[in-house]
Write a protein that binds this DNA or RNA. Structure first.
Lengths: 155, 155
DNA sequence: GGCAAGTATCTCGCTGAGCGAGGTAATAAT
DNA sequence: ATTATTACCTCGCTCAGCGAGATACTTGCC
């Protein structure tokens, strides 16, 4: 056991555990924030996805949203119903392809996203500011490499 | 809007978005793996928590587990019932304080954890191996700083 | 010792998120 | 014109998690 732990340290396992712990904490913080604002973790994740898409200039639809969150169509409809009921979202028929529904996020949703991520982002930026440019580059390369690893694994 | 994006880049916002994307992907991968093995995301998180505690030499109890996962006692009991039914876990009365129940993880749980995290860990270690020692140190410092930021924010 | 307060877990009943199956309306293909 | 496909929604159901409260044990105080 002690031998195993020593081997772990040498190989960089401490960093792996650290990473996992951070993700767990982020998850928990998200769940708490969601509950505090009368919504569910999934609702918050949906909001993130929608705001991301908006920032990237992409149109969101129920289908795409469901795919991104790993929900089936029934669950997606229910989710959008909830968000619409809360006034965070509007359904708008696409005039080009009238089968489709476009999802327009309300300013309120943006404000809500800000109130959750704002402080966290500020802290993260402050933390980042304590790193040299080459260190930041290393962190950036690590994160994007990790993202790829996760996606490829979960094929 | 374009101006805002430019400001984002300069300030390191790209790294913030990258980070969030990684956590989202990890979440999704976890949910998929859980579903594939007939358990729920919470069950997987519980397993992680239990294995972590075991590795750290700490005894797990329903109360502690529930706290870590943000569940109330009823939900925690149901969770443990599920895991016990799957044979991943055993309840054992503590002989010292007979109000308490100790949670013993089965080897099967460990194997399950390995089958999910093993490949991911291998990839992560391989990725880490491409960094210099000082770069790894930067990543480590960033992650642990981030962990603190998250926890302090969610007070 | 004996009684009150506190702690750890469990039971009961309920709400509601998400699933599977199937339906409707619009577009695309032959 | 008919059939297939796409995009979304409805219906009925299952079960994770919650609030309230019960139970069993321990600890503190007189």
């Amino acid at each position: 056991m002690a031998k195993q732990q020593a081997a772990d340290e040498a190989a960089g396992m401490d960093l792996v555990h650290l990473l996992r712990e951070v993700t767990v904490r982020l998850d928990l913080a998200g769940a708490r924030f969601a509950g505090r604002n009368g919504l569910h973790p999934t609702d918050l994740r949906a909001l993130i996805s929608l705001l991301d898409a908006a920032r990237a200039g992409e149109q969101s639809t129920p289908g795409r949203l469901g795919d991104r969150l790993g929900l089936n169509s029934a669950g997606t409809t229910a989710l959008i119903d909830r968000l619409e009921r809360l006034g965070l979202l509007r359904r708008v028929r696409d005039t080009r392809d009238r089968r489709r529904v476009l999802l327009e996020v309300d300013d309120r949703a943006l404000a809500l996203g800000q109130s959750f991520f704002g402080p966290l982002i500020d802290r993260t930026l402050a933390l980042l500011a304590t790193f040299e440019a080459d260190e930041q580059a290393a962190i950036r390369r690590f994160l994007s490499g990790l993202g790829e690893a996760v996606t490829e694994e979960g094929a």
